[in-house]
Write a protein that binds this DNA or RNA. Sequence first.
RNA 1: GCCGCUGUAGCUUAGUUGGUAGAGCACCCGGCUGUUAACCGGGAGGUCAUCGGUUCGAGCCCGAUCAGCGGCGCCA
Length: 428
Amino acid sequence: MHISDILNDNRVGLDVETRGWVYRSRESGKLIFMVIRDSTGIVQVVIEKDVVSPEEFSMAKKATIESSVEIEGRCFKEQKAVTGYEIHATKIKIYQIAENFPITKDKSDEFLLDIRHLWLRSREMTAVLKMRETVLDSIRGFMKEKGYHEVQPPMFVGGMVEGGSTLFEVPYFGEKAYLTQSSQFYLEAFMYSLENVYTISPSFRAEKSRTRRHVTEFTHYEAEAAWIGNQQMMDLEEEMVLFIIRNLLETNREELDIVKRDVSKLKAVEKPFYRYTYEKVIEIGREKGLQLSDAADLGEKEERTITEDFDKPIFVYNFPIQLKPFYHRPDPDDPTHVLNHDLLAPEGYGEVIGGGERTWKKEELIRRMKEENLNPEDYQWYVDLRSFGSVPHSGFGLGVDRLLTWLTGLDHINKVIPFPRTMRRLKP
RNA sequence: GCCGCUGUAGCUUAGUUGGUAGAGCACCCGGCUGUUAACCGGGAGGUCAUCGGUUCGAGCCCGAUCAGCGGCGCCA
């Protein structure tokens, strides 16, 4: 049985059997205290020399950290044991004596990345993996209830290039293919079929970024919905983020404790989120001492300064048109701005969502492309979508890993990704 | 890409004006019947990132190279 099933009063006095890996082991002459770990938790096992066979005892003494073991014994309540219960072993079977495990109490972030294939089994990473799962489950549950369909866009894409973007090039039967940077354009195609669609897929960016929130491969949650405007899309995102937080608090209190998250900060997040125009945010930045021009783009430092004192996420909407790509719809009431929004996480974490209304009229789309010196022919099929019953629509893209970094309160995106990929790290 | 910092045992690190490379953890051997990343005794483990230079003598000073980290920039 799993360790979590042992850690309760119902098992006290009963014989149990469990298996896992040696988490700690201390021996004291005729006594061995062995803490074992499985996917559900840790529990102390006491092995007494006079209770088990001499062979079992000497094997147990040799059991190193991470050795795989199976234990039979009786369960006791014991305050002195790490998790409050312990097993007095009557039988112990060793599957493999582990080689010298390289991770000890002294470890650097860098070293943990080098041996990530082993660090994955730590309590910290195990907790993160469980919380990741909760976030993804929450997204799927929420979107299903809202009538959205999950779709699978391609990861290999053709020569669609936006100016300034950085694509990974891969050989493709004598041609060049690229790894997708975003599935947005494909979601817009799916929209004409299913109306409300979303995907959770990897996106790839060949950016030579060296910041705590950039990686070259990340989990991208993107949605697109017909007949929806910018403000309505923000409503949906707000509800969705709250749903994820509630689920996480309900499902993963233990994991949040393991990563030392201050849960009061998460509990404080409630409706409504702040909603400020771009100009208002520039004003807030200036009040906090930032030197910002009227149409300054917000860098990481600016976002951190602006968001660090906030207790709830902030929507920033209607950016100056020159800051945003052609597919954002210009505001009909103010063509110098687009109907878009970013969602900035509080506590200094910054941008987690970018979204807004799409330019849906064919002529306007082509005009915007030309204004940005792009050739509409390079986007032939995307433009073609506007030729057959085009409709107003909106969408967004959320960086799952960035969201998780905020929710877990960790200081670097590479701590929430099992095998993070950066400019300088491709292994393990 | 630019700027800065760092590189000493498997890991985390100390190393004084340039003068015999030191510790903790992990590992091996021995001891201990209630340990909490135990404790006590012993042991093994080093091309001081690499290459070159200065010097009687370099972990330390100088130069180059490599690697990593941090910040900036970049950033559907």
